[in-house]
């Protein structure tokens, strides 16, 4: 077998396949944009009692102000306009809104991770807590977040807490779950022999935790943190919707839909997706570094 190295490997194993997929998506997207937006143009033409040629039709469907489905280049140029071309302090800057959402995502993710780990530690060390807490943890996730979010925001607003914290709380509500479940599994992952070994040394429960259970659970922790960080972003966006928040990607989505600004909606959606991908990749990167240091890299 011929083995590809360096740039050539990157080109053939990554860039080419990903590029092909992206190209196919873009082509399909243009196709759908024309299809979905065509009706509006035909109606317009009919109303104005004019005929339009196919090429005119296509051209117009891809440059509408409020298209049903914006074309890729419209979204790209909107994103360009609202990131690079705007001051980041501007209320129209996506960077500004992205930062608002990111900060509550990160706060919520941090609180969710701490809460998830604490719950897991409690559950692993106490049979009673295992039986009493675990069902509630699972039930908590069966309640739709769209129902919970307004309640949390409104109640906290009523007692004078607003802004970052209530939104972060919704992220916490979503993100503690994968961490708790993953960490319970991770803290219980040491095999009997590893536990027996600690027993032969007459080690304390704290020593068993710090020297065995905790390091053994690290790979599990990172796996759940990858899920948790993505879900935290969803939580933050959801948290920006119910009160008609004025800032954040969620607010952009909401105001976009109030005023039929589909291009704005789509660019907010894309920013959210990119943000999620970057966050997950960052956690993954930290995970790789830590696991390599610990000698546990796969």
């Amino acid at each position: 077998m011929l083995e590809r190295r360096g740039f050539s490997a990157l080109l053939y194993d990554r860039i080419v396949p990903i590029g092909v997929v992206v190209a196919v998506i873009v082509v399909l997207w243009y196709g759908f944009a024309v299809l979905l937006n065509a009706q509006f143009e035909r109606d317009q033409a009919a109303r104005a009692k004019t005929e339009i040629t196919t090429s005119q039709l296509i051209e117009r469907t891809l440059s509408q102000d409020r298209p049903l489905l914006p074309a890729p280049h419209q979204v790209v140029s909107e994103i360009w306009d609202t990131t690079v071309m705007k001051k980041i302090t501007s209320k129209r800057s996506l960077v500004y809104h992205g930062w608002i959402t990111l900060s509550s995502t990160l706060l919520g993710f941090l609180m969710g991770t701490v809460l998830g780990i604490s719950l897991a530690v409690a559950i692993v060390h106490s049979k009673v807590l295992d039986r009493s807490l675990m069902p509630w943890i699972i039930v908590s996730q069966t309640v739709p977040i769209l129902a919970i979010a307004p309640v949390i925001i409104v109640v906290l607003n009523a007692i004078g807490i607003s802004g970052l914290f209530p939104k972060a709380l919704i992220s916490t509500y979503l993100s503690f779950f994968p961490v708790a479940v993953g960490m319970v599994k991770g803290l219980r992952s040491p095999d009997v022999m590893h536990l027996d070994l600690m027993r032969t040394y007459n080690s304390s429960a704290a020593q068993v935790f710090w020297k065995l259970r905790w390091p053994a659970s690290v790979p599990f922790l990172f796996t759940s943190m990858k899920v948790a960080v993505a879900i935290s972003l969803v939580g933050a966006i959801v948290g920006e919707m119910p009160t008609g928040a004025v800032a954040g990607l969620g607010a952009r989505l909401l105001s976009g839909s109030y005023y039929g600004q589909t291009i704005q909606i789509w660019s907010a959606l894309f920013s959210a997706a990119v943000l999620a991908a970057v966050l997950v990749m960052l956690v993954d990167l930290v995970s790789r570094i830590v696991l390599r240091r610990m000698g546990m890299a796969q």
Partner: peptide, 25 residues
């Protein structure tokens, strides 16, 4: 000192770290 049928070393500890385990405890 107990030696198990499998080596039962902790994968996140180096060899020196593994030997150090009982000493730390």
């Amino acid at each position: 000192g107990y030696v198990f049928q499998a080596a039962a070393l902790y994968p996140w500890r180096t060899i020196a770290g593994n030997i150090s385990l009982p000493l730390e405890v």
